[in-house]
Amino acid sequence: AQASVVANQLIPINTRLTLVMMRSEVVTPVGIPAEDIPALVSMQVNRAVPLGTTLMPDMVKGYA
């Protein structure tokens, strides 16, 4: 199954992502693919992302 990017902590709005904030997990619905984690580093989220939330393309500025 495809692993997705999941928030490893609460990520406040406009925060630049770092590796420690993200983990890969097989979840439904599928979000951003886990292999994109390196590309997500330093991108900003456009909303607060609670712990355990799957990151979707529309949550990350410049990803989609």
Rank of each mutant, 00 (worst) to 15 (best):
I37F: 03
I11R: 00
S24H: 10
S42Y: 12
R23D: 04
P38L: 10
N14D: 15
A64S: 15
P29Q: 07
V20I: 09
Q44T: 14
T18P: 00
A48N: 13
M56V: 08
R16K: 07
M21I: 03
V27F: 02
P50L: 14
P38Q: 11
I32G: 02
A48F: 12
A1K: 04
T54D: 00
A39K: 15
P33S: 09
L40V: 08
L17C: 02
T28F: 10
V41F: 08
E35H: 09
R16Q: 14
G62I: 05
L51V: 11
P38F: 10
I37G: 08
M56K: 08
P12K: 09
N46M: 15
V20Q: 15
E35P: 07
T54R: 04
I11S: 00
A3I: 09
S4C: 04
Y63P: 03
E35G: 08
S4F: 03
A3K: 06
A48Q: 14
A7S: 11
T15P: 00
P38V: 10
R16I: 10
T53V: 10
A64P: 08
M22W: 02
Q44G: 05
M56L: 12
L51R: 11
E25G: 10
E25K: 08
M59R: 03
S4G: 04
S24K: 10
I11N: 00
V30N: 10
A3R: 06
M56G: 04
T18E: 05
N46V: 14
T28D: 15
I13P: 10
V6N: 00
N14I: 03
N14V: 03
R23E: 03
T53N: 13
T53R: 08
A39P: 04
S42A: 10
V6W: 02
G52I: 03
A3D: 08
T15K: 06
A3T: 07
L10N: 15
P57H: 08
A64D: 08
Q2D: 15
Y63D: 03
S42K: 10
Q44L: 09
T53C: 04
N46D: 10
A48E: 14
V45S: 05
V5E: 01
Y63K: 03
M22T: 01
M22P: 00
V6Y: 02
S4H: 01
K61Y: 08
A3P: 11
T18G: 04
A34I: 07
V60A: 01
D36G: 11
V6C: 04
L51E: 15
P57N: 05
A1Y: 11
A39Y: 14
P38M: 14
L40I: 15
S4D: 00
G31A: 03
T53G: 10
L51M: 15
M22A: 01
V30C: 05
M59G: 03
D58N: 10
G52N: 13
V45W: 00
A64E: 10
S24G: 07
A34Y: 08
A3M: 14
N14L: 11
V45A: 06
P29F: 04
T15N: 05
P29L: 05
A48K: 10
V6S: 02
A1D: 15
V27D: 02
R23S: 05
I11L: 11
V26S: 09
V20Y: 13
L10F: 14
A39T: 15
Q2G: 15
P57G: 09
G52E: 05
N46I: 12
L55A: 00
L55N: 01
L17W: 02
P57E: 06
M59C: 04
K61T: 13
L19Q: 05
Y63R: 03
P38I: 14
T54I: 09
M21L: 06
L51I: 12
K61H: 13
S24A: 14
P29A: 04
V5R: 02
Y63V: 03
T28N: 10
A1N: 08
E25N: 13
N14P: 00
I32Q: 00
Q2I: 10
G52V: 02
V27C: 04
M59L: 05
V27R: 11
I37T: 07
G62H: 08
I32M: 03
V45H: 00
P38C: 06
I13R: 09
A48P: 08
E35L: 10
M22C: 03
D58C: 13
T53S: 13
V49L: 10
A39S: 10
P29T: 06
V30I: 12
N8V: 12
V49S: 02
A7P: 02
A34C: 05
E25R: 07
L10I: 15
V60D: 00
S4W: 02
E35R: 06
I13H: 15
L17P: 02
T28M: 10
S4Q: 02
I32L: 05
Q9M: 14
L40E: 00
E35N: 10
M22E: 00
I11G: 00
A48M: 13
E35K: 09
V30Y: 14
L40P: 00
T53I: 15
D58K: 05
A1T: 10
L40H: 00
G52W: 05
Q9T: 14
G62R: 07
R23N: 05
T18I: 06
V49D: 01
V26R: 04
D36W: 09
A64W: 03
S4N: 02
R16S: 14
L10P: 15
V6G: 00
D36S: 14
A64F: 04
L55P: 01
Q44R: 13
P29H: 05
R16A: 15
M22K: 00
P29S: 03
V26A: 09
V27Q: 04
D58H: 09
G62E: 09
L40G: 00
T18R: 10
S24C: 05
V6P: 01
V30A: 12
P50D: 10
V5P: 00
S42Q: 08
N46L: 14
V20M: 15
V60E: 01
A1W: 08
P12H: 11
N46K: 07
A48V: 14
I32T: 01
M59A: 08
M59H: 12
T28K: 05
S24N: 08
P33H: 09
P12E: 14
R23T: 06
V30L: 15
S42C: 08
E35V: 13
V20D: 07
L10D: 11
A48L: 09
M56T: 12
P57T: 06
L40T: 01
I37H: 03
S42T: 14
N8W: 06
P50S: 10
P33N: 08
A1M: 12
E25H: 13
T18S: 11
I32E: 01
N8D: 12
M21Q: 03
L10A: 10
L10Y: 15
L40R: 00
V49Q: 02
P12F: 08
L10V: 14
P12V: 06
G31F: 02
A34K: 07
A7M: 04
M56N: 08
G62L: 06
A48Y: 11
L19Y: 11
Y63W: 15
V26P: 12
P29C: 05
D36E: 15
P12I: 05
M43Y: 11
A3Y: 13
M43P: 00
G31E: 02
T28L: 08
P33L: 12
V41M: 09
M43T: 05
L40M: 09
V60R: 02
V26E: 12
R47P: 02
S4L: 02
M21C: 03
T53K: 13
G52F: 04
D58T: 11
P12G: 07
D36N: 14
L19W: 13
M22H: 00
G62P: 09
L17V: 03
P38W: 12
E35A: 11
A3Q: 08
Y63Q: 04
A64T: 15
A48T: 14
V60Q: 01
S4K: 00
V26I: 12
S24W: 09
L17Q: 00
M43V: 05
V6E: 02
L51K: 13
A7K: 01
T53F: 12
M22F: 07
V45Y: 00
V5H: 02
M56Q: 11
V45P: 02
P50G: 11
A48S: 14
V49K: 00
P12N: 09
M21F: 06
I13Y: 14
V45R: 00
S42W: 11
S4I: 01
Q2M: 06
N14Y: 15
Y63S: 03
L17S: 00
Q44P: 06
N8A: 15
M22I: 10
I32D: 01
V41K: 05
L55I: 14
I32C: 03
N8F: 04
E35S: 13
A48C: 05
G52P: 00
V45M: 14
L19F: 07
Y63G: 04
P50I: 08
D36L: 10
Q9C: 05
A64Q: 13
A34F: 06
R23K: 12
R23V: 04
P38N: 09
V27G: 03
P38Y: 15
I13G: 13
L19H: 07
R47I: 10
P12D: 08
V45I: 07
A39G: 08
A64G: 10
V26N: 09
V30G: 08
R16G: 11
S24P: 13
Q9G: 07
G31N: 01
I37N: 00
E25F: 09
